[in-house]
Amino acid sequence: MGRKSIPSNSSICDDGVLFILTRISLSRGYGTDQRVRVRINSDVNQPYWTREVILLNNPGRKYTIGSGNDLENLDPEKYGQFLIFRNKADVAEEHCQIECDENGTFWLYSLGSANTFLNGKLIPDSPVMLKFGDIFHFSHIISQLWDSALIHLTKTGYRKRLYRMNKLGEEYAVFKFDKKPTNSYENKQPGQTFYQFSRLSKILN
């Protein structure tokens, strides 16, 4: 993979959660492994952060994001848990990887020649430390000048502009790394309800 080693001045952190920005449809059915917080009487077709995977704070644990077109030939020791996004726009076969170091800090690697943007800025040199609330994606949202400002607005609640589709109708993948909640139902705010959706496969729409 040919990449730099993780710096040693990292600090302990909790388990993380990887969310993906998508539109929710109630027709997907009900389940227990996916909870989406939606305001009562809100438009469920608006984009929401939906939970993709829990990132365990275990030293050496790896999570690789890519299209996984050649998954049978991928080395599980090298790539760890592979998260497949086969029909998302601008996702390379092996695009990026999140790894937890011996001190419990998560790091983001951009693999090969694939572009990865963290909080609106292109990652020039891997790895970079992931902090709770960080947003990463694989292509410019507006432009190099405005993307970081847009990410700032997104962190205050504005999500619509982050959700995009290409001419083929493929969604651009936008992810958020955040802290794992202790209990989703305990954190429910007044005036909100939970719709639960089952994920039958790691392969997204």
Rank of each mutant, 00 (worst) to 15 (best):
Gln81Thr: 13
Trp49Gln: 00
Arg61Gly: 00
Ile54Ser: 06
Ser25Arg: 11
Ile20Glu: 01
Thr50Asp: 10
Val36Asn: 10
Ser42Ile: 00
Phe19Met: 09
Lys131Asn: 14
Glu102His: 06
Asn73Ala: 07
Lys121Phe: 12
Glu94Phe: 04
Ser25Cys: 09
Tyr30Met: 12
Ile135Trp: 06
Phe136Pro: 01
Ala92Leu: 08
Asn45Gln: 06
Asp90Leu: 05
Ser126His: 05
His140Tyr: 14
Cys100Thr: 03
Gly120Ser: 07
Leu55Val: 01
Asn103Leu: 05
Gly120Asn: 11
Arg51Ser: 14
Gln46Ala: 15
Gly68Met: 05
Glu94Arg: 15
Arg86Trp: 02
Tyr79Asp: 11
Leu153Gly: 03
Asp43Ile: 11
Val53Gly: 00
Tyr63Pro: 00
Arg86Gln: 12
His137Thr: 07
Leu118Ala: 04
Thr32Tyr: 09
Phe132Gly: 06
Lys155Tyr: 07
Ala92Tyr: 09
Glu52Ser: 07
Arg23Trp: 03
Asp101Val: 00
Cys96Met: 04
His152Ser: 09
Glu77Met: 14
Arg35Glu: 14
Lys78Ser: 13
Ser126Asn: 06
Asn119His: 01
Asn58His: 13
Gln81Gly: 04
Phe106Tyr: 15
Met129Gln: 10
Leu130Gly: 01
Ser139His: 13
Thr116Trp: 02
Gly112Pro: 10
Asp43Leu: 10
Lys131Ala: 13
